[in-house]
């Protein structure tokens, strides 16, 4: 995400937070599944789901980002399949809703600006859409530690 280059971003909402992930790392957007619990896994991990015959481990976005639990049932919301570790892993990430797919010029993003309510090391940049701030998540920094052995 170097300056001046246009970046495509997927904007979504998790709890009270408007977030974005680089569209290049988004493999698929799926409805929310009821997962199979993985005993011993950290609380952020919802469990395993079946994506057309492949097993995908799903992380609850609201727990990973310290947001309030979504009000709907376990099947409400959306699962975003994200590529981690340069595409070597595909992880499901639950969000409350997907808002938009944006193409943003690098210059409109501000680097690492601290926002209240989110760990600054997980923020790659901050942008603005329709007057509202959103944080571009460092999905590797957010999710890789969950899987590090």
């Amino acid at each position: 995400m170097s300056d001046g280059e246009a970046v495509r971003l997927l904007i979504f909402r998790v709890g009270n937070l408007a977030c974005a992930a680089e569209a290049a790392t988004v493999r698929e957007i799926l409805p929310r599944f009821e997962p199979t619990r993985i005993p011993g896994a950290p609380a952020q991990v919802a469990g395993l789901v079946n994506v057309r015959g492949s097993l995908v481990t799903v992380v609850d976005g609201w727990r990973a980002l310290g947001q309030p639990a979504p009000s709907g049932g376990p099947r409400d919301g959306t699962t975003v399949l994200l590529e981690l570790d340069a595409g070597r892993k595909v992880i499901g990430f639950t969000v409350d809703e997907v808002i938009d797919l944006l193409s943003v010029g690098g210059e409109t993003l501000e680097r690492r600006q601290a926002l209240p309510g989110i760990d600054p090391t997980l923020v790659r940049a901050v942008g603005r859409r329709a007057g509202q701030l959103f944080v571009v998540l460092d999905t590797d920094a957010l999710l890789t530690p969950i899987f590090a052995s």
Partner: peptide, 10 residues
């Protein structure tokens, strides 16, 4: 099938 086991998985 294999799966990506999170840290701490029993």
């Amino acid at each position: 099938k294999g799966f990506d086991a999170p840290q701490g998985t029993l």
